[in-house]
């Protein structure tokens, strides 16, 4: 009975719907990175992109009945957590040195 309802659930929602939702979320992340100048917002948009990919991976895994996709999502989450810790530390160091959260101040890294 449970399997029946799950099959109905997955069949009721076409896989294309998940692809579209993930693509839209990823594109919003890309647009946010290009749109804003605040470092923290840009960082949040990167998180948004990671989550869009996670959702698509989980959807593919569920539609194939394969656990490996979900394990991959689990690892992506672990890497994202580590990335956020280091990234926010770097961001705080930048803020301490430049006294601004504007990404354009970082153009001086060129020299």
């Amino acid at each position: 009975m449970e399997q029946h309802t799950l099959a109905q659930t997955l069949y009721g929602i076409p896989l294309n719907a998940y692809i579209i939702v993930s693509a839209v979320l990823f594109s919003i992340g890309v647009m946010g990175v290009l749109y804003r100048r605040n470092l923290i917002i840009i960082f949040m948009c990167i998180e948004l992109m990671l989550n869009a990919v996670n959702l698509l991976l989980a959807a593919f895994g569920a539609y194939r009945g394969d656990s490996n996709g979900q394990v991959f999502v689990f690892f992506i989450m672990a890497v994202a957590a580590a990335e956020v810790a280091v990234g926010l530390a770097i961001l705080m160091m930048i803020y301490r040195n430049t006294k601004s959260s504007d990404i354009d101040t970082l153009t001086r890294l060129k020299w």
Binding site: E2, Q3, L6, A7, L10, Y11, P14, L15, N16, I19, A23, A58, F60, G61, A62, Y63, R64, G65, D66, S67, Q70
Partner: peptide
């Protein structure tokens, strides 16, 4: 580019508890 993947093979009924 992702439009072409809609033909995923049939749902593996034995492995419904994958998650």
């Amino acid at each position: 580019s992702l439009k072409g993947v809609e033909k995923i093979e049939n749902l593996n009924a034995a492995n419904q508890s994958a998650g």
